[in-house]
Design a protein around this nucleic acid. Structure first.
Length: 749
DNA sequence: CTAGGGTTAG
């Protein structure tokens, strides 16, 4: 459905400017509550709903059916609705306008638009509420374009829209992101001064929220004369959706002060704010409020509470909620899987990260056994877990499942697949997954560009970037990080600056630290340290920790130690929060024998959380983890293989460097066993022993690799003729035939 | 009777 011609609304069809008078009377019937048992008995064939019949000739009036239908709708009990519909026909009530109009609404809410349309077509008399219900049904069943054409049909039939109809129409525009169409109606609304109405104002608020105009969304909210709970909810979620959670919280507090009681939907929106703000304290207060207001059986709401606890690391709280739910939905399972997937990156050490990932995969298996079918959210979380664990085998299984369930064609799933293969070190399969996608978003393109750049395929990365521009997709700042890092890897200075200018001038994107880091990294790779410092001076750049680390690595590999120590002092002044940074400095001072500085850095390190070094390797669906350990703690087989490899590496010029983080008294032992101690060496050796020749070794490490291990693994790839992939906290290293895909500039410690 | 919500890839 293309956009509505502008004349239709404003001129051709006459609208009653005072249509607020036309709005329907309020609810005529009191709500009545039925137990689940009663409702279930309605669905069964054998039992007649005689219990509902009271007196007279056994004929029910339409007023009996409305609250029951409402209850069925609320519980999404579709067969109950159908059963009641059958009774309505039997009772000869099909001519009851109010009842049949309500049924249109109920069928729409239950996702049965075919039935809704049938009831609508057989209405004794069409009315604006039925038209509006039909529109609303199509919107909530993901066919907003049909809502627009129903609106046109309605106008052509000569019916007047009400404030509700215009609100619903705006919602259709919001779902379609058809802001031009919305503008036409908005013009009409402004002309007749209708934006003080809640139905219209609420819809305007959501509309502006969807087009990322928070200022206008708030303005629309403020213009509503009688703000109701929906208005407040709309503005709270508008703040959340546009990255201003704190303002959303303020709004929620204002709502409470104004004496408007939040409902389940409001509380869900507020919890989502707590989630993004990591506000566990506020979140648990909301949890109490939920219990107090009696919303503790609202499943979507409890899903949000559970997700907040998961994201805040309160696993036991989340599990308690999960186990306490008497029914769970797909969203519940998805939230659990996503929660554990998220925890991987927050985990303090390798082992707990790994167990979070395994937990996520096991939850998925339990979900499968419970008979629920996964959806795109399930798949994107699962693929992210496989990426984090560098679990190619499991990733392939998930890939197979996406084909089986038909979700492979989903753009989010396709992109997640590209990332999974990339992070598992298989750029070829990542490219294949990308090429097989039927539609691609900016994020898909950016993922592919970044993946190619990470694997050192700069020309291909830039080609994909040009293809992306050719098909009319507008790059953003993250795309340019990928582009600039491709140029940096290949040392293409001219092209790097051409793209840098393109970013600033053609796309009006202001450079951020990551862009500067790429350019500085490029100079460093070309051994142009002075140019790097010139660039910093020229742009008045205040380097961050990451940029200083790049500069230090460059100075060291060029033997410009004075400059390296100068940079190191600058870095120390930033008081890094990251113990890896201190390790780099410590390592430098140790190798220079500057023991005074060593103890100074050690003192500073005490205030920083110490990182435990971990590596793990996934072999035949089983994960083996290794930590920094001395020779006597290793298995004989691993120690023997490492000894052998070190001996064979020596003729190629390998010399074990002094270990980095050791105590003075350990210094003596360290020199001899340094090469044995780092976890990635142990994991690689274990992998070599336990896999066949054609299998690639995939190791994951929680902090950056050191230079010694990097040199050593390069030689191992020659000595054993194997491909070895190590993904550390900074990047992916793919070792093959004595070379690494990072071209030795992986920000090595 | 018609409006507002949760899990989402770089």
């Amino acid at each position: 459905m293309a956009s509505l011609p502008p004349v239709v609304v404003a001129n051709t069809v006459k609208l009653d400017p005072d249509f607020r008078k036309l709005s329907a009377p309020s609810l005529l019937f009191e709500k009545k509550h039925y137990s689940t048992k009663e409702l279930n008995s309605l669905g069964s064939e054998s039992e007649e709903p005689v219990s509902l019949t009271t007196e007279g000739n056994g004929k029910l009036e339409s007023s009996y059916y409305v609250p029951i239908l409402q209850e069925c709708m609320h519980k999404n009990f579709v067969s109950g609705v159908e059963s009641i519909h059958a009774h309505i026909i039997k009772s000869g009530l099909v001519a009851e306008l109010f009842l049949m109009t309500f049924l249109v609404n109920v069928y729409g809410k239950c996702g049965r638009m075919g039935s809704a349309r049938k009831v609508f077509d057989n209405l004794p008399k069409r009315n604006v509420v039925a038209w509006t219900s039909l529109m609303s049904g199509y919107i909530s069943n993901s066919r907003p374009e049909l809502a627009i054409s129903i609106f046109q049909e309605m106008l052509e039939a000569g019916a007047y829209p009400t404030n509700y109809t215009l609100g619903v129409f705006l919602n259709a525009c919001t779902s379609l992101c058809d802001f031009d169409l919305a503008k036409q109606i908005h013009g009409y609304i402004v002309k007749y001064d209708l934006d003080g109405d809640a139905s219209i104002g609420n819809a305007l608020c959501s509309l502006y929220s969807k087009c990322h105009n928070l200022r206008m969304a708030i303005k629309a909210f403020e213009r509503i004369e009688e703000k109701n709970v929906i208005s407040w909810t709309a503005v709270v979620s508008a703040c959340g959706a546009n990255g201003n959670s704190a303002l959303g919280m303020d709004m929620f507090v204002k709502m409470l002060v104004a004496g408007v009681e939040p409902n389940g939907i409001t509380l869900t929106s507020v919890l989502s704010l707590c989630c993004t703000m990591q506000a566990l304290e506020a979140g648990s207060q909301i949890h109490s409020l939920i219990m107090k207001l009696g919303y503790d059986s609202d499943l979507p709401l409890m899903n949000s509470v559970m997700y907040l606890y998961l994201k805040s690391g309160c696993i036991s709280e989340a599990k308690k909620l999960f186990d306490g739910m008497n029914s769970v939905s797909l969203v519940t399972w998805n939230a659990m899987i996503a929660g554990y997937a998220e925890m991987i990156s927050l985990a303090a050490d390798g082992l707990s990260a790994y167990s979070c990932g395994i937990e996520a995969l096991q939850i998925f298996q339990r979900m499968n056994r419970s008979g629920l079918k996964p959806d795109l959210y399930t798949f994107s979380s699962l693929l992210s877990v496989c990426s984090s664990l560098v679990a190619l085998d499991q990733g392939e299984q998930v890939h197979a499942l996406t084909i089986k369930t038909g979700f492979l064609s989903d753009v989010v799933v396709g992109t997640a697949l590209v990332n999974m293969y990339n992070k598992c070190g298989s750029i070829n399969r990542a490219s294949k997954a990308f090429l097989e996608m039927s539609t691609r978003t900016l994020i898909s393109w950016t993922s592919m560009i970044t993946a190619l750049a990470q694997h050192g395929r700069s020309e291909q990365a830039l080609q994909v970037f040009e293809d992306m521009r050719f098909v009319g997709v507008k790059p953003n700042k993250i795309t340019f990080v990928g582009v600039l890092s491709a140029c940096s890897q290949a040392g293409m200075v001219d092209r790097a600056f051409a793209y840098y200018d393109m970013m600033k001038n053609e796309y009006k994107i202001n450079p951020v630290m990551d862009h500067y880091a790429c350019l500085i990294d490029m100079f460093v790779r070309l051994n142009q340290i002075d140019e790097a410092f010139d660039f910093i001076k020229k742009t008045n750049l205040i380097p961050n920790e990451f940029i200083w680390s790049i500069l230090i690595a460059g100075c060291r590999s060029q033997g410009k130690l004075d400059l390296a120590f100068h940079a190191a002092e600058q870095l120390l002044e930033l008081e890094p929060k990251d113990s890896e940074t201190y390790l780099l400095l410590l390592n430098m001072y140790i190798s220079a024998g500057r023991w005074k500085d060593v103890s100074r850095v050690r003192k500073m390190m005490r205030d920083v959380d110490k990182i435990v070094e971990w590596s793990w390797i996934n072999i035949r669906n089983k994960v083996h983890s290794f930590k920094f350990s001395s020779k006597k703690h290793q298995s004989d087989e691993v120690a023997k293989l490492l000894d052998d490899l070190i001996d064979r590496a020596k003729p190629f010029g390998y010399k074990a460097e002094t270990d980095m983080e050791i105590d003075e008294e350990e210094k003596e032992e360290a020199t001899n066993s340094a090469a044995h101690r780092h976890s990635e060496k142990l994991a690689v050796a274990f992998g070599l022993i336990n896999t066949s020749r054609e299998v690639q070794i995939r190791v994951m490490k929680n902090i950056g690799m050191c230079r010694d291990c990097h040199n050593f693994i390069k030689l191992v790839s020659v000595l054993t003729s194997r491909t070895i992939i190590i993904r550390d906290s900074k990047r992916l290293h793919k070792f093959y035939n004595g070379h690494c895909s990072c071209k030795d500039f992986g920000g090595l410690v």
